[in-house]
Simulated assay, not measured.
Amino acid sequence: MLFACAVPTLRIEQPSDDASLEQWRHVHNTIIPTDPLSLDEVRERVRRNRLAVAYAGDELVGCSTVRPPNDETTAATVIVRILPAHRRQGLGEQFYEHELAEARKLDADGIETIILASNTDGLRFAESHGFVEFERYVLPGDTIPFITLRLT
């Protein structure tokens, strides 16, 4: 006999105050410990990009960034981060689909994502959704590269 587990529906919100920006920052800094951000840096990012936080019920499960095309790239960038305790439950899939729809509203010639090389779950997810690596870079003073992937 097979039993289907229902995937909780995510509540996705754009951070609107310091408390929700701090939640976004917490997820980012947990997933990207090599490049932690201050609250002031997150405040600056929310002016340039679409940031979102995701909850299953009242529990924080992830954050995202959707960057519009800019002087460096004509692609939109979609980055979805799910806290390790909430992975492999279908939450990343819901969040990714939502944020991908947001990115597709932008005037972009493609979709990219950026993942820290040590985040093997994130890389596996991106590759299973059609993303292909096309660039690696290391921030000054770091040893773990970021991988830029493009949706094919």
Rank of each mutant, 00 (worst) to 15 (best):
M1K: 13
F3P: 10
C5Y: 15
A6G: 14
V7F: 05
V7H: 05
I12G: 04
E13L: 12
D18T: 01
D18M: 00
S20E: 08
S20F: 02
L21H: 08
R25P: 02
R25D: 01
R25L: 07
N29P: 10
N29M: 03
T30I: 03
T34C: 06
P36D: 06
L37T: 03
L37D: 06
L37P: 05
S38L: 07
L39C: 08
L39N: 09
D40F: 12
D40V: 14
E44W: 01
E44L: 11
V46G: 06
R47P: 08
R47E: 13
R50H: 08
L51R: 06
L51Y: 07
A52K: 04
A54P: 00
A54K: 05
E59W: 14
V61P: 02
S64Y: 02
S64L: 00
V66S: 00
V66L: 09
P68G: 13
N70R: 05
E72V: 12
T77K: 12
V78P: 02
I79N: 08
I82P: 10
L83I: 04
L83R: 06
P84C: 10
A85Y: 09
R87W: 11
R88T: 12
L91P: 10
G92L: 10
E93L: 13
Q94G: 00
F95H: 01
E97L: 15
E97G: 14
E99L: 12
E99T: 07
K105F: 04
L106D: 09
D109Q: 10
I111A: 02
E112C: 13
E112V: 14
E112R: 13
T113R: 01
T113D: 01
T113M: 05
S118L: 02
N119D: 11
T120V: 11
T120F: 15
T120A: 15
G122W: 03
L123I: 04
L123W: 07
R124P: 03
F125P: 02
F125K: 03
V132I: 09
Y137P: 03
I144Q: 06
F146A: 09
I147F: 03
L149D: 04
R150H: 11
